[in-house]
Design a protein around this nucleic acid. Structure first.
Length: 552
RNA sequence: GUCUCCGUAGCUCAGCUGGAUAGAGCAUACGCCUUCUAAGCGUACGGUCGAGUGUUCGAAUCACUCCGGGGACACCA
């Protein structure tokens, strides 16, 4: 619809298409599309009003002119028939588009640390990453998800030593993660008294690096058990699987070649005993410690080059906190200095902190909060609220799980990702206002209406499309452009806001008029419209990895 | 100190690739269920868009300066 309008205007005024901007009027009653005519004014040496009036005379659309804007009114019945028809026909595929057709995107996200509980610190990367994965696929990209586990480093030497020294096999069988946590704490306590323990840790890490069998088998055991443990959290979040599980350990033998390349290109310098790359106006990157050990950035560069070779991506997204922006800037500069022409394909998708009372979220002891605990707490609270509203509900466990988990995810995704978000379980689970449960409630409401549907074909002859309905239909037609915008900005909150707006429009419609009435044809039309809304809510929430509920 | 992000209603935030009277939710006060899920809808109250200067026909939006807050800044990841 938009393209046609741009074509006609640019032809009529003989101006370049890029000059023709199509906006949405602030007030929806002013029109469906708005063309500001100010920018033509300079080009054509006429007043915006004259230009707008000229367009009004010569365009085949129904228009009006106000304050230098040309407002266009679409044929409501025509749009309505097309949009509803398209949605009911395409169902879950409504909004599919080929924005990214033929292009490949790699997304790295979640990335919990092996041998540690899945902390709430990894919630944001997980849900933002997963939403971007879903959105990207919807846009037709060939998408690859990578979970880059923190599975390497001196702490594994310490863990092996600690487990060998103080580990209890029976406890380990119950929960290896808890047992590792216990011995790791013990290690640190003992190491305070006896610093030689740190040396033991380093020795075991060295053994691990040298592929010592015993060290490797412990390490592998820790890693396998950790992944099993993570899968419980992923299952609750309904994240099936990642296309690739990698770890820092995958790159232990790929770093030397990278360092060699850097050397060959004369990029390395020695400074204060360490090996660095000078990056001009930003902080130099530390490639090797003064003791010769490699660092995080070296592994990241090795991994990046490896992925480029392996996947030949058009874009790679790193869903990692804002605080690492310097790190990624360094990575990009180094890639560029190495002579690779694709540094602009590397994108850091940063996000703000999860705060509680204005401070980084942690337990009373200052430890990181276990994500599973937060989700379970949310589910319990949801259950309590649901039973207050509806004591006879069926499938209470399933419903409270979907609402409890969905609320936490929605709370994370509803705001612009760069901003810090305040986490308050009460607010998150509020059953009023801009929340996940509000959307799920709207869906459930529509779902119960739909039992009245008779699947008749609708005649549009005597149908009145009032403001409530038109707002809804117009909003439904904008779904695809919102998905694309969410991808362009790599920001799932665009979808979340869109859905809130849509649900709000539906609830107005629902409150203002009766949907099932005596007029069979009109009822069927309103039910079709309702079903279209339900399909889009379901579809949009699924992009955010949130489930809908049929009854609540 | 340098770099960077942020500053919009009492609170949480939209709007920011410049455009028509600055929008939601929560909170507060009212109103709406003999009729489809009131987890909803509506009304009222609430704003020098941190401050200033500039660019522009037009600035919450762009640029610069300042103020306030967060984060990063070499041997962690």
């Amino acid at each position: 619809m938009k393209d046609e309008i741009v074509e006609s205007i640019s032809a009529l005024l003989k101006v370049d298409k890029s000059l023709v901007k199509i906006e949405y009027p602030k007030d929806r009653t002013m029109g469906d599309y708005a063309i500001p005519c100010f920018s033509f004014s300079k080009e054509l040496h006429k007043s915006p009003m004259d230009i707008a009036n000229y367009l009004k005379e010569n365009l085949k659309y129904n228009t009006n002119v106000l304050n230098g804007y040309l407002n266009i009114f679409m044929d409501k019945k025509d749009v309505c028939q097309k949009v509803i028809g398209k949605i009911l026909n395409e169902k879950d595929h409504y909004g599919d588009n080929d924005y990214g057709k033929g292009k490949r995107v790699v997304i790295e996200y979640s990335s919990p640390n092996v041998a540690k509980p899945f902390g709430v610190g990894h919630l944001r990367t997980t849900v933002i990453g997963q939403a971007l994965y879903n959105i990207t696929k919807k846009c037709g990209f060939d998408t690859i998800s990578i979970n880059y586990l923190g599975d390497y480093g001196t702490q594994f030497g310490k863990l092996i030593y600690a487990y060998k020294t103080w580990g209890d096999e029976t406890k380990a069988k119950e929960s290896l993660i808890n047992e590792l946590k216990r011995v790791y704490v013990k290690f640190h306590e003992e190491a305070q008294k006896d610093p030689s323990l740190d040396e033991e840790g380093r020795k075991w890490f060295k053994k691990l690096e040298d592929n010592d069998e015993e060290a490797l088998s412990y390490w592998k055991w820790f890693k396998d058990e950790s992944i099993k443990e993570f899968d419980k959290t992923y299952k609750l979040l309904e994240i099936d699987k990642f296309d690739s599980y990698e770890g820092e350990s995958n790159y232990k033998d790929k770093m030397e070649p990278v360092i060699k390349m850097l050397e060959d290109k004369n990029l390395l310098q020695i400074s204060e005993g360490a090996t660095i790359i000078d990056l001009g106006d930003i902080t130099p990157a530390l490639i090797k410690r003064s003791d010769g050990a490699s660092l995080y950035i070296t592994r990241d560069i090795a991994a990046l080059i490896d992925r480029k070779n392996k996947y030949n991506f058009d874009e790679i997204l790193y869903v990692v906190g804002n605080e690492q922006s310097l790190h990624f800037e360094q990575v990009k500069r180094i890639i560029e200095k190495m002579g690779y022409p694709w540094k602009d394909q590397v994108k850091h998708i940063g996000f703000g902190l999860l705060l509680q009372d204005g401070k980084k979220m942690s337990t009373r002891q200052g430890k990181s909060v276990v994500l599973m605990d937060v989700l379970n707490e949310s589910i319990d609270l949801a259950k309590k609220y649901i039973l207050e509203k509806n004591p006879n509900i069926e499938n209470i466990d399933e419903v409270s799980r979907k609402i409890g988990v969905g609320a936490v995810i929605f709370n994370d995704l509803k705001n612009y990702r760069i901003n810090d978000i305040e986490f308050n379980l009460e607010d998150t689970l509020r059953f009023e206002g801009n929340t996940g449960p509000y959307l799920q409630y709207t869906y459930a409401r529509i779902n119960s209406l739909l039992s009245n549907k008779q699947n008749l074909s609708v005649s549009y002859d005597n149908i009145d499309i009032n403001e409530d309905k038109w707002n809804l239909i117009w909003n439904l037609s904008k779904y695809e452009e919102n998905i694309i915008s969410a991808k362009e900005n790599n920001d799932p909150s665009i979808i979340a806001k869109y859905l809130l707006d849509l649900a709000s429009d539906f609830n107005k419609f629902y409150a203002h008029e009766k949907i099932v009435d005596n007029d069979q044809n009109y009822t069927e039309f309103k039910l079709n419209l309702s079903e279209a809304v339900a399909l889009v809510i379901k579809n949009g929430l699924s992009l955010l990895n949130i489930n809908v509920i049929n009854k609540m």
